[in-house]
Structures are given as structure tokens and as C-alpha cells.
Design a protein around this nucleic acid. Sequence first.
DNA 1: AATGAAGGTTATAGTGGCTATAAGGTCAAG
DNA 2: CTTGACCTTATAGCCACTATAACCTTCATT
Lengths: 139, 139
Amino acid sequence: MPKASTDKHYTVGQLAKATGTRAVTIRYYDHLGLLPSAGRTASGYRLYTENERDRLLFIRRCRALGFSLDDIRELLGLADRREASCAAVDAKVDEQLEQVRMRLRDLHALEAELERLSACCEGGVIGECRIIESLSARS
Amino acid sequence: MPKASTDKHYTVGQLAKATGTRAVTIRYYDHLGLLPSAGRTASGYRLYTENERDRLLFIRRCRALGFSLDDIRELLGLADRREASCAAVDAKVDEQLEQVRMRLRDLHALEAELERLSACCEGGVIGECRIIESLSARS
DNA sequence: AATGAAGGTTATAGTGGCTATAAGGTCAAG
DNA sequence: CTTGACCTTATAGCCACTATAACCTTCATT
């Protein structure tokens, strides 16, 4: 890793473009303390370095995997402790994987039920619609 | 099922038990106008009839299928027009089905990526963890 | 009749992860 | 020296609830 120009600076807007994040979202992360200690220009503009850009990219990758911001806060904390065991990281990933699988199971069930409903419509009037019938109480 | 006493009345709590919905949620639906015109006792308690119980069950079934409350408001409107074509109902179901399938595709991709991540952890320290590496910027 | 528990009522604020709006300050170019 | 693109903050809204507070009603027991 040749760290050539490590002192490149970004305003929020530039960082937004560089990372595919909206500026408001960056400010939101700042507000939450996820992207802390941004430097400021004399006039109060945020100034980010490559360090913070990388941190933001890390956050966005985690978000894309479905991690909550709280999860990400933990992951960021772990990532900084280079000598610690990575068991906790692995556990977080496995936990997230399990949650995704649970949601998949739920959605598959939903899909099946919606398919069933869709198939039973024969194109008549609502008074005879099996979909509405199915959704209505007949207990 | 002999529908003996069609004028059975429910307080919120009773309706909650009868439908597996929380009382607060029922009041919330009332507030939104989804479960309108509940009668009131002299002292101001809501009083629901079997009509409203059925309407609530309809809402809950739709919710279980992932429909938004706005969708449900539409579906309720449709369900009442017994002579109208049920094409709109069918379309709503198909649209919801398509959305569920989209979310399924997204989640399957997430699952695959998380599986990949999980598999690449070899149980060392964080400094060498491939998961953290994967999540960190290397562009 | 008094009391206490279990119900009911309202209004308001919080959840998560942003997004939208308002009302203003800064900066480079023409 | 003005225009327009950028930046700043604070606040409110989204969805479908959930939680809290402060109060009122009903019913059973003493």
C-alpha cells in the first residue's frame, strides 16, 4: 500500500461524489458520531481526509450488507483493534446472515401466498372475487 | 359456523384479543380513519361491532402480506364496490408480488455476499481478517 | 361506600435511516 | 458586485407502530 497523497482533502460535496453518498447523509453520520472529528475550514466547512473517506466507504459497504448503524458502530470499533481476535467480527457477520435468511424465509412465504391469491382471480366483479374473499373474514 | 348474535360488541381490548391486534394499534387505525366510525359508550369507550372486527381482520391479513396501509385503504375501498371489476384488486396483488420478488432478489444477493464473507474468516486477529479487509476500502 | 386493579381515554414523543425544507453564510467566476 | 453553486444549522416528515404520561371508568371485593 503506497500511501502517495495522504493529505488530500474533501468538502462534504466532494466526499459525497467520491463515495456515492449524499452530502446530507454524510452530515447525518457526522451528527451521530459515526464519522467523527471532521476538520473545519476557517469558515466552518467540513474538511475530510482520505482516512474519513475510507471510513465512510466501510460504513456504506456495511449498510449495503444490511447492517444497522449500531452494528456498524461496533464493527468500526472492532476494525480499529488490529490485535484482537476477529471472532466477534465473524459472529456479527453470521448473525446478520441469519437475519437475512429469516427475512428470506418470511418473504418466500409471502411470495407463495401472493401467488396463490393472484392465481385464484378469474377476472369477474369484486362481489365474486376470490382474492377479496380470501382477505375477508370467514373464521 | 352459525352466526348467532350478529350484534356482538367489543371494546378495544376485546377486539384486540379477538383479532390478535394490540389495542394501541386499533386506536392508531381509528386515528388514521382506517377503522372508522366506532360507536362510543356514554363514557367515551369505543364500541366495535362484528363489521368492524371483520374489517380489522381484513386489514391485518393485508398487512401480513406486506401491503402498506395506503394500499390497504385502497383495497378496502375496492372491496366495498361489489359490482366493480376486480382487475384493480388483481393488479394490486401482482404489484405487491413483484415488490416481494424484488426484495427477494436483493436479499438473495445479500445472503451470497455475507456467505462469502463468513467463509473467508480464518479465525486469526483483526489485523489479518479478510472480512474487515473486504469491508475496508481498497479501491 | 371505599378501594384497587384492570381496563379505557387523549396527546405527545420515540424508533431507524434517512429525506426535505427553511433560512442563512461562503466562495469563485463573470 | 452579483449570480449561482456550494456550505452551515435546525427542524419536521416518512412508515407503522410503540412507549409514556396523565387522567377517567368499570367492576369486584371488602
